[in-house]
């Protein structure tokens, strides 16, 4: 597929404020993203198919190379789209993708408030990967200020790859939770927030 089509779609859609191309991945940043939560959609273009998803990255999330923390994809919808796109003309491809983006934008629009996003994640906790769960518990503390999540949060530690920097930060987080250290937690969260904001500033001004 011609990547130009995706740039055209971005230009003609007023719901997005930034466009980032990362290899075969096209990232659109939703213009209602706040200082607390970046949102958007991604289109991945492979040789014979595309995949679409919507994403969210709270500033309160463990730092990692990939700026996108939570990504949600509907495989069935993608497979339906890919059937439609086989042998299609550029204008039809654009039409199909625009419709898909509109439907993803509606989903993203529901998540603008960090509180709504937290409840959305909570309702899908079983579908999240281990690292996403680690980020969920961090957000859970940020929203509820409750140290009692320690017992629940520690359960996922064995599932985290020990070489990942998120795991190291998560161990610190667990230790602060366990000891209910208010001040240390404030410093910990502030540091994470500043780091993520800086990363996003750099990404969006690049």
């Amino acid at each position: 597929m011609n990547s130009k089509i995706i740039r055209e779609i971005y230009k003609s859609n007023k719901n997005f404020s930034h466009y980032i191309k990362n290899g075969g991945e096209h990232i659109f940043v939703f213009n209602k993203s706040s200082g607390e939560l970046k949102l958007g959609i991604t289109i991945n273009v492979f040789r014979c198919k595309v995949s679409t998803s919507y994403w969210a990255s709270p500033m309160i999330s463990f730092p990692f190379i990939d700026p996108i923390v939570f990504k949600f994809r509907d495989e069935n919808e993608d497979s339906h789209i890919n059937k439609k796109l086989q042998g299609a003309t550029d204008s039809y491809v654009q039409e199909v993708l625009e419709n898909r983006i509109n439907s993803l934008t509606k989903a993203v629009n529901e998540l603008v408030e960090i509180g709504n996003f937290y409840h959305f994640l909570k309702s899908r906790l079983n579908e999240l990967g281990s690292f996403q769960k680690a980020n969920f518990y961090l957000l859970c503390y940020f929203v509820n200020k409750d140290f009692n999540i320690y017992d629940e949060a520690k359960e996922i530690l064995p599932k985290l790859n020990k070489h990942n920097p998120i795991t190291i930060s998560f161990i610190d987080f667990l230790s602060i939770l366990k000891n209910s250290e208010d001040e240390r937690m404030d410093v910990f969260i502030k540091k994470i927030e500043i780091g993520n904001k800086k990363k996003w500033e750099d990404l969006l001004t690049y």
């Binding site: 990362n22 290899g23 075969g24 991945e25 492979f46 014979c48 198919k49 995949s51 990692f64 190379i65 990939d66 990967g129 281990s130 690292f131 985290l160 790859n161 070489h163 990942n164 920097p165 998120i166 795991t167």
Partner: peptide
């Protein structure tokens, strides 16, 4: 299904990272 799946430090990542 065909998919470009790469993994970095336990996390699914983009091809070629």
């Amino acid at each position: 299904d065909g998919c470009h799946l790469s993994s970095l430090l336990g996390v699914k990542t983009d091809w070629g990272m």
